[in-house]
């Protein structure tokens, strides 16, 4: 395999955003990813992690300790910007509106979750289509599977964490069951893929 074919990606590099979903149990994995990114990482990252609904503060701060890039909880209608990392706030669904802005919602729980990963990835896929990279990490419910299906149907690059590596693998296996996923990777490989794409985008500039 030559270096340029290291991963099966769209070589024209259309990517504009990354969406990552996981449960509270993915905390360590997310921390590992966020501590491995360069401070000038090219793509905006939006994350939806299951978290306590009635605890507004603490989670983002805890993730920020190790992250190389400051993580923010977006406000409603905030434009999505390059170089930023966003985390869905407690007790709100985080969605993407056409025109690259966020929209928040207090709609009913979905998959017993608010924020729901499905809502974030579905709306991100609707807005970014093949320009999205959608990543689903480990977790104990099927939230995210419908989102990954929507992403796959829109031509996004889809990645799930290797179930063999997950403490609880319901999340990635649910996605693998209902849709085609481009890559099933260990966390280290997910990081490697993100760095690889980042390098390629930088070279192209």
């Amino acid at each position: 395999m030559s270096a340029s074919q290291k991963y099966e990606i769209d070589e024209s590099l259309p990517y504009k955003a990354i969406a990552i979903g996981g449960s509270a149990g993915s905390f360590q994995v997310v921390t590992k990813i966020l501590s491995s990114l360069p401070t000038d990482f090219e793509l905006p990252i939006m994350m939806c992690l299951h978290r306590l609904r009635h605890v507004r503060n603490g989670f983002t701060e805890a993730l920020n300790i190790k992250s190389t890039i400051n993580i923010e909880e977006p406000t409603d209608k905030e434009p999505i910007k390059k170089g930023k990392i966003y985390l869905a706030p407690a007790n709100y669904h985080l969605c993407v509106e056409l025109g690259n802005t966020f929209a928040l919602s207090t709609e009913e729980l979905f998959n017993n979750s608010r924020p729901a990963i499905d809502y974030m990835i579905q709306t991100a896929a609707h807005n970014y289509r093949h320009k999205l990279i959608a990543i689903l990490l480990s977790g104990a419910n099927k939230d995210g599977a419908l989102g990954m299906k929507a992403a796959s149907e829109k031509g996004a690059l889809t990645v799930v964490q290797d179930p063999a590596e997950c403490l609880i693998d319901t999340m990635p296996t649910s996605a693998l069951k209902i849709t085609k996923i481009n890559h099933t990777l260990s966390v280290d490989k997910i990081i490697d893929l993100l760095l690889y794409i980042d390098q390629k985008i930088k070279k192209k500039k």
């Binding site: 406000t75 409603d76 905030e78 928040l104 207090t106």
Partner: peptide, 9 residues
């Protein structure tokens, strides 16, 4: 307004 809303836009 809600804690995650903003007038700045």
């Amino acid at each position: 307004v809600g804690s995650k809303e903003s007038l700045i836009w």
